[in-house]
Amino acid sequence: MDIPYTVDTRPDTGLYNAKAGIWLFLASEVMLFGALFSAYILLRVGAPEGLWPLGWLNVPLGTINTLVLITSSITTVMAWAALKVNQFDRFKLFHGITLLCALIFVGIKSFEYYDKFTHYEVTLKDGRIADGHLKEATDTHVTISGRFVEEREELYDLHKHKAHGHETITIAREDIEKLSNYGPRHNTYMAIYFTLTGLHALHVIGGAIVIGYLWGPGSRLWRKDPERFTNRIEISGLFWHFVDLVWIFLFPILYLL
């Protein structure tokens, strides 16, 4: 059975079916991310003065990931343009680069997540706060590479209170009142950071799987039905550009501002 309107446009919509479908899907995606952006705004505006984290994320890594996604966006659209002019080899090259960019993005994001999950804030029973990366944890003590701060506020705005030099700090378990890493439970900023970037990363992974399939086994369709294959690349490309578009907003609001 032939699926109708995979290549030809429907007379009523003026589009082939997959294109109408992807735009309806992207419209729902805008509302999904919109709701989370709304949550971000409410959390940020509702945070007590001086207690919204600034400078907690690695700006060079975030910038590199932004450049990686921008690069993947142009290679995606150029892969589609190459198919439009029957240049399958160029398509393979450009889409291969897109796939590579997706893997680099996920790799960098994973490194950033690992960094947060091994970063700890330790509140001591005497009121002091130690902050740094975990080196060792035993039944009797915890060792971190970091620093002591007098007030918790010093940990929030790292643009104002830069950490100068790290020392190895060993703390006995019995002296610890609270120990928590910078995971989603740490505070509302980390919760919304992991929710937004985690959902975005799932989109990157999902997109990469589709792009990988179309670059590899799925590309056999080119020989049988080139127009239909070109349309598939356009659809996956629209999704990929949307993923880039979301990151364009995530990067400044989470990393820079």
Binding site: G14, L15, A20, A27, V30, G237, D244
Partner: peptide
Amino acid sequence: VAGYFMHLISERKMIYAILAFT
């Protein structure tokens, strides 16, 4: 990105209608 990479600068009316609701 939306205008040039996603070609929204010159698209069909149906897509604009979907996006108007969005």
